[in-house]
Amino acid sequence: MRDAFAELSTPLVADACVRLDVPLRVAPPGIAAVVPGQRLAGRVLPARHYGSVDVFLEALGNAGPGDVLVVDNGGRVDEACVGDLMVLEAVAAGLAGLVIWGLHRDTPELVEIGLPVFSYGSYPPGPVRLAEAERSALVSARFGTHLVDASDIVFADGDGVLFVPVDRSDEVLATADRIRRTERDQADRIRAGQTLREQTGFADYLARRAEDPAYSFRRHLRRIGGAIEE
């Protein structure tokens, strides 16, 4: 999965989801890599946090190589729920990385460890609360408005984080790659002197729209094989 995602991006995956009518499940804005430029892809390993790391340790006992620990801390910004010891433990378990709906701490140590970690940012204090865990604590995780579990793949890079069902991931990645190749060709042609307006027959689009106000640019792009809006 990481190899297939290597030349792609979350915007391309998102566009592919739109094109294929796959539900678009994107993490809230602001989730970013501790080390800029890091990226990851892997099966979701869910864990809901209640104030203690025991839920993470239990989750890692069920981890497969390349999984991504998806931590549901309710988007809290009053405590950090993951630090260096847990990230080291994730490395030992063979995880591809962590995605946290919340905050992390021990930033210098996480940078040194090097495992991709995505969160809202850093915060010194850890949790002082201890709530009762739900029965589904290791079955699914909330991330913003979305509920994810082991039937999902998580993709993360500099533009954000999104989730795709495992059973749709191959076609989503294949479509994202086709969009990438089309857009790279368009970019090369702009650099060579052919404007995007020329490539997309924009004058023709304006003429068609004048005759038919319902004729959208997205419809026009699909007719000519463009890909810049999806």
Rank of each mutant, 00 (worst) to 15 (best):
Q186N: 11
I31Q: 12
G83T: 09
A16L: 11
A96L: 02
Y120I: 00
V172K: 04
F56D: 01
S151G: 15
A32W: 00
D152A: 09
G30E: 11
S122I: 02
D3E: 13
L196C: 06
R209I: 01
E183W: 08
A80K: 03
R181F: 04
A14H: 09
A93L: 08
E183V: 14
D170C: 01
A227N: 11
L110I: 10
E134W: 02
T145C: 13
M86H: 10
G37H: 06
G74I: 13
L57Y: 00
V77S: 14
H146T: 07
F56T: 02
G94T: 09
G37N: 08
T107R: 15
R178S: 07
D21Y: 13
V166S: 12
D185M: 12
V111N: 00
V172G: 12
G226F: 00
A90T: 07
G121K: 07
L162Q: 07
G144C: 12
A207Y: 03
D3W: 00
R181H: 09
L103H: 15
I224Y: 00
L69T: 07
R209Y: 12
I228G: 03
E198K: 08
G83Q: 06
L221A: 11
D157H: 06
G75A: 12
R135Q: 13
V53M: 07
Q199I: 07
S122D: 15
V68E: 04
R129I: 13
I153M: 12
E171H: 03
F56H: 01
I224V: 15
E7L: 11
P116E: 06
F155I: 03
G193T: 12
C81F: 01
G42Q: 03
E198R: 08
P65V: 05
D204T: 15
P28K: 11
V148E: 13
P11I: 08
G225Y: 10
R180F: 03
G74R: 11
V139S: 14
H49I: 05
F143R: 05
A133M: 00
V82S: 05
G102T: 06
L130C: 03
R218K: 10
P108Q: 10
R142L: 08
A210Q: 01
F163S: 06
R2Q: 14
R48M: 08
G158F: 02
A41R: 01
D170P: 02
H49W: 06
W101V: 09
V91G: 10
L88I: 05
R189I: 12
A63Q: 09
V99Y: 04
G114D: 08
D188F: 01
E58M: 03
H220M: 04
Q38W: 04
R48N: 02
D3A: 15
A16M: 08
D67N: 06
V34M: 10
G160I: 04
C17I: 07
P124G: 06
I224K: 01
A150S: 14
L12N: 08
R184H: 02
I190T: 00
G64C: 05
G42N: 03
I153D: 07
L57P: 00
A4P: 11
L138H: 13
D170W: 00
G75P: 14
Q186F: 13
R218P: 01
G102M: 03
P125G: 03
H104T: 15
